[in-house]
């Protein structure tokens, strides 16, 4: 059984990390990151052409995580594959023992490194959750039985607690729960009141919420986040604190520690996105008082 599902359902505070597959075939750096972050996490999200930019396939990188003994969360975006390819990757994932799936729409291609690419979006993320939930009942999108019987995916989705109007955002999230999502992972959250609002609402529908924390290690990273990451803006006071610090990286670590500690009292888990400071993740978690995963 998925360790992530087990921990969330038992009410244990979970930690998830984020792994970007390489742009190329050298697995060494990714393995190294997994070895640093993995032991502190219940599961590792493995991104799927994140930021609409080219990377090795998430499925292959998930297998690498499993090889090293870490539990992956297989991310699937709707941007690069149609309904046939999405289902075939889900079948592959289940056949190779990947249980956690995070289904996301995917950034628009024009925000990535291949702006000429055609976005597929044959399904949207709510529809793909319905398809994966159907596989959990043993059938494909056309209702035909799957050889080997039902899959047992633990299905997750994205939610954006700070997005306004919140009514539209919440309605979409509830639609995802009805479609089969059992847990949410959020974009980085700075406004904790809005995180409380999201967690309260989603708990009422029986879903778990793992809140995102970004380590904003430099003014350059803040600019990048504001310019390139969909559904996210670093508040001015946060940006100022890091920009004006004598050592921005240390200020970013301090901020992340405070955020993780606060999230412990609000959400069901924390998702740490270190943006390059992977080596500091164990320290952030330890200082925030979060025990090693599992």
């Amino acid at each position: 059984m998925s360790r992530l599902r087990d921990a969330l359902e038992r009410g244990e505070f979970v930690v998830t990390g984020e792994i970007a597959p390489p742009r190329g075939s050298d697995l060494a750096a990714m393995r190294e990151t997994m070895r640093i972050v993995g032991p502190r996490c219940h599961a590792l999200n493995v991104t799927d052409n994140q930021g609409a930019s080219l990377h090795m396939s998430s499925f292959a990188a998930c297998l690498v995580a499993k090889e090293l003994g870490y539990e992956p969360i297989f991310q699937q975006t709707c941007r690069d594959r149609n309904r046939l390819a999405l289902q075939s990757d889900l079948m592959a994932a289940w056949a190779f023992g990947i249980e956690n799936v995070l289904v996301v729409t995917g950034d628009d291609p024009r925000s990535g490194d291949h702006p000429q690419a055609r976005g597929v979006f044959d399904l949207d993320s709510t529809q793909l959750l319905q398809v994966a939930a159907g596989m959990n009942e043993g059938h494909d999108m056309q209702g035909r039985p799957l050889s080997g019987g039902p899959t047992g995916f633990y299905l997750g989705a994205a939610v954006f607690p700070e997005a306004e109007p919140w009514g539209a955002q919440l309605a979409r999230a509830v639609g995802k729960i009805e479609a089969g999502a059992r847990f949410f992972q959020t974009q980085a959250v700075f406004d904790l009141d809005k995180l409380v609002r999201a967690v309260d609402a989603l708990h009422q529908h029986g879903a778990k919420v793992v809140a995102g924390v970004l380590v904003l290690r430099s003014p350059r990273v803040i600019d990048f986040v504001n310019k390139h990451l969909a559904g996210l803006a670093v508040p001015d006071d946060v940006a100022k604190r890091i920009r004006e610090a004598p050592d921005p990286a240390e200020a970013a670590i301090d901020l992340a520690v405070e955020q993780v500690a606060a999230i412990r009292d609000i959400a069901d888990g924390v998702h740490v996105m270190p943006l390059g400071l992977d080596a500091r993740v164990p320290e952030i978690l330890a200082r925030a008082g979060v025990a090693a995963g599992a």
């Binding site: 925000s111 976005g119 979006f121 993320s125 709510t126 529809q127 994205a158 306004e164 979409r172 969909a230």
Partner: peptide, 25 residues
């Protein structure tokens, strides 16, 4: 811009579509 039937997606911010930059979602 993604032709989604169900939205908004994560590119919606203050009711505006970030993929388009200057238009309402």
């Amino acid at each position: 811009p993604k032709g989604l039937l169900n939205g908004p997606c994560g590119a919606m911010w203050e009711g505006v579509c970030e993929a388009l930059g200057d238009q309402e979602c």
